[in-house]
Design a protein around this nucleic acid. Structure first.
Length: 592
RNA sequence: GGCCCCGUAGUUCAAUGGAUAGAAUAGAAGUUUCCUAAACUUUAGAUGCAAGUUCGAUUCUUGCCGGGGCUACCA
């Protein structure tokens, strides 16, 4: 039982004894004491005046006296206005630490969820926007798992549609049989270049037609290269063997490229869904919906859903020519996933906030189709990543490429580490691995420390900062403790599982307090789908530990019990830092 | 126009309705005979505006002002 629980229970008892009133545990507002007052836990007593029929100050004092007498955790207390500040006894803190030492970190099992993230188009490489998505989705998956849920990680690959046909046309026209191997290029970059090439040719053809007297909209429809792409899409839908084979081959190149990047990022998936597999199922569902009267058909044959009663618009589900739109395939994908995984109680879609309307509509449609799980679908929406010089636009070449960015941050940490010259005993391979951990740590932390729903203004300089509120700062603390523990082991300091010291410094108590909060923080982060909660926690813990480091001697402490306690405390903190960073997808180096 | 999100130190981020609004960075000033100075200490600096609810509002409500997004037979 932890201190909060003991306090809450005792406060509840106190109300019974003092005022003959019962108080639900949820009504007890316990919060950390502000630094300028003595104590660690503060009870806000203003709301209790009503029950106690006394002013807040008197109520707080009465409660404080009761707690001091009837519990053995409260050593003393002070009252400031309606705030009751409790000082927990050193013995109680040690008891808390002993429990933490025993704790194996297991959480109660809580069901099964599916998390979707990344979900790229197959016509261009991954960029900075994807990185926020991928790191967020991965981290939320880790957090949900740590909170006791079983997680299936998936992505939907948008492998179908006019966009991939554009790359295909350009490759057929200008590729002369080139392959990623023959060019020594990464598959996704290779395809991306043809997509860019398409766009260039398209623009020049349109310009030519306009010069020949056409209106711009007309010219865009008539550009030969566009017609070729459209023609190719039609052939693809009819499963024309030649087109289909080319499509499969070119997508294969892209997947290979993506996988290289995913691996570099340290993420993966349990299962992949392809739009080309799900759009037909979606169409069937929509047609069924028409029969059921949930949707309706217009005279031209297009199918719509009317959501005006729900405060939304009418939405197209099938084009007049019978082909699917984005919404159609998402309906199919959602249903297929529940068929594949009947036990999931929640689907989480990691997708940018510009698609909030889309998902509102999707979930509503699934609900109307009679799928009860639709109400449990969740759009994990996040803000855009803006660049200092404006928005990212792939066609204008203002994107930050994922591979380039990763290479850059690694190069930057390499440079910085060499400058500090602290890695002499590492082999070249170990050193490279360290740069990778630090570079990615900086980048991931930079993108995850911010509340997901907020926009991020991406500053290339700050994203590789190694000081202050950054990933490497936390990693550094871990490396520092690791070094300490190596020395402790060499000195033969015993690692006890149980302590009985009777005097702790304020920083030590603070650290035990923070350690004890970790499980609760994980639940908070899981409930809010917010890795930033974990980032903040890890940073605070590391910062607090660095204060301890600066203020007390650990290995040279003469009192043996105290020395052993501090080593054990350090070890536990390193462990918690490492798992907190793990929840963010960040590795913890043992030296740096 | 309608709907959604965001406005906090120069800058980037925090704050279940609670105390004198926390950090980082940039600025100023310090700390290495001792376990990793990628650290630590000190210092100065902020809630867009106006009402309302409340013992108490950065937080909830309304209006206004700024920024962004959505409102496609694109995905």
């Amino acid at each position: 039982m932890n201190i909060e629980q003991i306090l809450k229970e005792s406060i509840s008892n106190a109300f019974q004894q003092l005022y003959g009133a019962s108080l639900a545990e949820e009504e007890v507002a316990l919060q950390p004491t502000r630094k300028e007052f003595e104590g660690s836990h503060t009870l806000v007593c203003f709301p209790f005046s009503r029950i106690s029929k006394q002013n807040p100050e008197a109520t707080a004092t009465a409660l404080g006296e009761y707690l001091q007498q009837h519990t053995d955790v409260v050593d003393r207390f002070n009252v400031v206005k309606g705030f009751l500040n409790l000082v927990i006894s050193d013995k109680a803190w040690i008891a808390v630490f002993n429990v933490i030492l025993q704790n194996n970190g297991q959480m109660a099992k809580k069901g099964e969820v599916m998390v979707e993230y990344s979900s790229p188009n197959t016509n261009k490489p991954l960029h900075l926007g994807h990185m926020r998505n991928i790191f967020l989705g991965w981290s939320v998956s880790e957090i949900l798992e740590a909170s006791g849920q079983q997680v299936t990680r998936v992505q939907i690959i948008n492998d179908r549609g006019i966009h991939i046909c554009k790359s295909m046309v350009a490759w057929k026209r200008y590729g002369e049989g080139a392959t990623p191997e023959s060019e020594g290029a990464k598959g996704d970059k290779f395809i991306g270049n043809y997509y860019v090439r398409y766009d260039r040719e398209f623009k020049s053809e349109v310009a030519e037609l306009i010069a020949g007297g056409q209106e711009s909209a007309e010219a865009e429809r008539n550009a030969p290269i566009f017609k070729e792409a459209q023609d190719m899409l039609l052939k693809w839908e009819k499963k024309d063997p030649e087109v289909y084979a080319l499509w499969a081959k070119m997508n294969g190149w892209v997947y290979e490229g993506f996988n290289t990047t995913y691996k570099k990022m340290g993420v993966d998936f349990d299962k992949l869904y392809y739009e080309s597999d799900t759009y037909l199922l979606g169409r069937e569902e929509v047609l069924k919906g028409v029969e059921k009267g949930v949707f309706y058909k217009k005279d031209d044959g297009s199918v719509w859903v009317d959501l005006t009663d729900d405060g939304l618009d009418e939405k197209l589900l099938l084009r007049s020519d019978g082909t699917s739109v984005y919404m159609t395939q998402d309906i199919g994908t959602a249903i297929l996933r529940y068929k594949d995984h009947p036990n999931i109680n929640r689907q989480i879609y990691t997708v940018g906030n510009e698609q909030e309307y889309h998902f509102k509509v999707l979930f509503l449609i699934l609900d109307k189709l009679g799928y009860s799980w639709a109400r449990e679908c969740y759009h994990l929406s996040y803000g855009m990543v803006d660049l200092p010089f404006g928005k990212m636009k792939s066609r204008e070449g203002t994107v930050v490429d994922a591979d380039d960015l990763i290479d850059e941050v690694i190069a930057k940490t390499r440079e910085k580490t060499m400058e500090l010259g602290k890695i002499d005993e590492l082999s070249p391979e170990e050193a490279e691995n360290l740069y990778r951990m630090l570079g990615l740590g900086a980048l991931k932390y930079y993108l995850l420390r911010v509340d997901p729903k907020k926009r991020i203004l991406f500053n290339p300089e700050e994203s590789v900062d190694l000081q202050g509120n950054t990933g490497p700062f936390i990693q550094y603390t871990h490396a520092r403790i690791s070094s300490l523990l190596r020395k402790a082991d060499a000195l033969g300091v015993e690692r006890k599982q149980h302590f009985a010291c009777d005097k702790l410094t304020d920083i030590e108590k603070e650290l035990v307090y923070r350690l004890s909060e970790f499980p609760e923080r994980i639940q908070d982060a899981a409930r809010e789908f917010s890795p930033s909660v974990i980032a903040q926690y890890a940073y605070d813990l590391a910062r607090e530990y660095n204060k301890l480091w600066q203020n007390v001697i650990i290995l040279k402490e003469e009192d043996e019990t105290l020395r052993e306690f501090r080593v054990a405390l350090s070890a536990k903190i390193a462990e918690v830092i490492s798992s907190a960073l793990g929840l963010l997808g960040i590795e913890s180096p043992v030296r740096m």
